[in-house]
Design a protein around this nucleic acid. Structure first.
Length: 652
RNA sequence: GCUGGUGUAGCCCAACUGGGAGAGGCGAUCGGCUUAAAACCGAUACAGUGGGGGUUCGAAUCCCUCCACCAGCACCA
């Protein structure tokens, strides 16, 4: 995702020239294979060449009027996306360095000054956007890449952007894979050098709000003086603090600008009256290095001591919402790389591992007139409508209008679909709410908020508690918990299950924090203890109860600590560490494997876990049920997967 | 439009990465306890894995295709 966001693209910069004036107009392209199909060029309305070229020409008025209109358009991505493609001919032409051909130079609103060089070579035959523009303004279309069935420039309904054979392409004519030839063309441009162009890597890091007209954010430490110009705030005066006397008024722009005490200051250079910068930096500026400051937060000499950073960083495991993947996390990485280059940190990546948890979602309701509605303001058409997560559900209680729609989205204050967990904490306790949330779904997945399931977590904790209280007295004493060498099969089963539980929970948590399955394993073990009719061996009992409590301790820490004490432990459970499984104890004594006939389950056989292939085959074929189902049939093949299953393919 | 994710029981979700469709939980039903209800205890039922096609002895899992939902990105040359 980050790769896409920084928009790294490899391509070439190609040096076009204005025919009439000789001005350079470099362009960036990722498709140098289409260089020979250029029929016009588009430059951004903000491009400095626009004014320079048309000044004093007969077309000046017309071009500048059109350019002015284009510049007036918004620059937000949304506006850009919805805008109609427009352009105006400058009256000038450019010369294509690869073949000397001339092409008209246009100004177009879809060319962005902030990307590449602000100029786009246009190949309408092989680029959809260029194609549309060419059709609109009746510009020529020249195909240079041909699919097997050929291509008719006059009949084209859209640009041809797939693979094909290169034609009319100078030294590359005849290449039958244009995409494969791109690298060669870039090499060729590099060799040919200055006149033509060179290989280039481009990025399109978007604006990340370094300056914004808001109160919240770190002030930019800059002062404007009439005489001295832009003057940085001297180090001794840092940091510049936000004023406390600002007035927040709707529609009055930046509140900082209206704070006299903030804006008015003295020039640090000449001492005359000066004005302070009122834009602030986005909070991303701070969140890009806070993890370094945290390591040495009390340091008032410098932002951090590199020695301490060396010890503590990088972060082993970063957990955050997916919404941070493309912004905060990129900035943090970028800052770290800069600090590395400055020699302040000895690593280039701040976070070793990343885990993105899913969002908690809940149905939100929308009324055309009253906008977002809380659930209580919706009059549902029927019981079914109440459970719908999309589409029309009923009337708005506020305005009475029908047609309130439901939508499943991330819980947010603005959409009025928030839940207040306090009531749940009061009723069930934080441990119980946490257990419920973690047991409901894997954490990387979106979770639909529902309180129905919390009873399950409540019951689990109550059962475990009751069990601990009842059985604590029957456990072997803490200090003498020697495991007997001989145990009956029931006790052996319980021990096996205990150690399997440790193994599987460890896997579940290490393999992506899958607490839901970890909790399921614990429930399984608890169910097994409850199903015990006879008394459990005291040593086994201590082992199993302590195991469960230790395993759930990261999820329900307060609860686990209480249980631990009840089991006679005096040290905190968090000094006990994570339990370790004994593989020998966890190993199965006997397993049951399925026997299929033609892929359908016909019987099950009990075998040793390491039963050999031939023995499995014989046991399966000797089974009564299997015999019955293959009677009168010819055995074509017997597939044996040791430890897993037997499948008999029979015909007739 | 592009990219990624998800789709399994009435509901939330498992399934050792190709091998018995069900681990855990919610809810439901029945029974026990109770004067009764809740709680608690015990038991039971419910799907053939979004649709279609393919590969295979065998597909929830792999391939193709279509559908639905969620998320991110979207004139980036």
């Amino acid at each position: 995702m980050q790769e896409e966001w920084i928009g790294k693209s490899r391509g070439a910069t190609v040096n076009f020239k204005v025919k009439e004036t000789g001005d350079d107009v470099p362009v960036f392209t990722t498709r140098p294979d289409t260089l020979w199909g250029v029929t016009y060029m588009s430059i951004a309305p903000e491009h400095p060449l626009v004014e320079k070229l048309v000044k004093g020409t007969p077309r000046e008025a017309e071009v500048m009027a059109a350019v002015k209109k284009m510049r007036a358009g918004g620059t937000s991505e949304k506006e850009l996306a919805e805008r109609e493609k427009e352009g105006v001919f400058t009256g000038f032409h450019v010369v294509n360095p690869v073949n000397g051909e001339e092409a008209p130079l246009w100004v177009a609103n879809f060319a962005l000054m902030t990307y590449g060089t602000g100029a786009v070579m246009s190949v309408p035959a092989h680029d959809q956007r260029d194609f549309e523009f060419a059709k609109k303004y009746d510009l020529p279309i020249k195909a240079v890449i041909f699919p097997e069935g050929g291509l008719d420039e006059k009949e084209m309904a859209k640009a041809y952007v797939d693979k094909g054979e290169m034609k009319n392409s100078g030294p590359f004519t005849g290449e039958n894979d244009n995409f494969g030839a791109i690298e060669k063309i870039i090499d060729w441009l590099d060799r040919e050098g200055k006149g033509k162009g060179k290989g280039t890597v481009n990025y399109r890091l978007r604006d990340w709000l370094l300056s914004r007209q808001r109160y919240w954010g770190a002030p930019i430490p800059v002062i404007y003086c009439d005489d001295c110009g832009v003057v940085p705030v001297p180090e001794k005066d840092l940091p510049v603090l936000l004023p406390t006397d600002v007035e927040f008024k709707e529609g009055h722009g930046n509140p900082l600008a209206s704070s006299e005490s903030f804006v008015n200051c003295k020039c640090p250079k000449c001492g005359k009256d000066a004005k302070r910068e009122t834009d602030t930096m986005d909070t991303f500026v701070d969140s890009s290095w806070y993890f370094l400051r945290y390591c040495d937060s009390k340091n008032d000499e410098k932002c951090f001591d590199p020695e301490i950073i060396k010890k503590l960083m990088p972060v082993d495991q970063y957990i955050g919402g997916i919404e941070h993947a493309t912004m905060h996390l990129i900035y943090a990485r970028f800052y770290t790389m800069v600090l590395h280059d400055l020699g302040l940190v000895d690593f280039t990546e701040p976070f070793e591992r990343l885990f993105c948890q899913g969002m908690v979602c809940k149905t939100a309701y929308f009324c055309e007139k009253c906008k977002w509605l809380p659930e209580t303001e919706v009059e549902f058409a029927d019981a079914e409508a109440q459970n719908k997560t999309q589409g029309k559900v009923g009337k708005c209680k506020k305005c009475g209008k029908d047609g309130v729609t439901a939508e499943m989205t991330k819980i947010s204050k603005s959409k009025l679909n928030i839940v207040d967990p306090d009531a749940m904490f009061d009723k069930y306790g934080t441990d119980c709410v946490r257990l419920y949330m973690l047991s409901d779904a894997p954490p990387d997945r979106m979770q639909i908020w529902a309180e129905d399931g919390i009873n399950g977590a409540w019951r689990t904790l109550n059962r475990l508690w009751t069990m601990i209280v009842e059985k604590a007295g029957s456990c072997a004493p803490v200090d003498e918990a020697m495991m007997p060498t001989q145990l009956n099969s029931k006790n052996r089963d319980l021990r096996r299950k205990t150690h399997q539980c440790i193994q599987r929970v460890t896997e579940s948590i290490e393999g992506g924090f899958q607490f839901n399955t970890a909790i399921a394993r614990c429930n399984e073990l608890l169910n097994m203890i409850r199903a015990f009719k006879k008394p459990i061996n005291p040593a086994v009992l201590r082992e199993v109860l302590e195991t469960v409590v230790r395993i759930v301790s990261p999820i329900v820490p307060h609860f686990a600590e209480e249980c631990w004490e009840r089991l006679g432990r005096t040290e905190s459970i968090f000094t006990a560490g994570w339990p370790e499984a004994d593989a020998a104890v966890a190993a199965e004594e006997a397993i049951e494997i399925p026997v299929q006939v033609n892929g359908k389950l016909r019987s099950r056989i009990k075998v040793k876990p390491d039963e050999s292939e031939s023995s499995l085959r014989d046991t399966a074929l000797a089974d009564e049920k299997v015999k019955a189902s293959i009677e009168g049939k010819e055995i074509v093949k017997v597939i044996v997967v040791p430890g897993r299953m037997v499948n008999i393919a029979a015909k007739g």
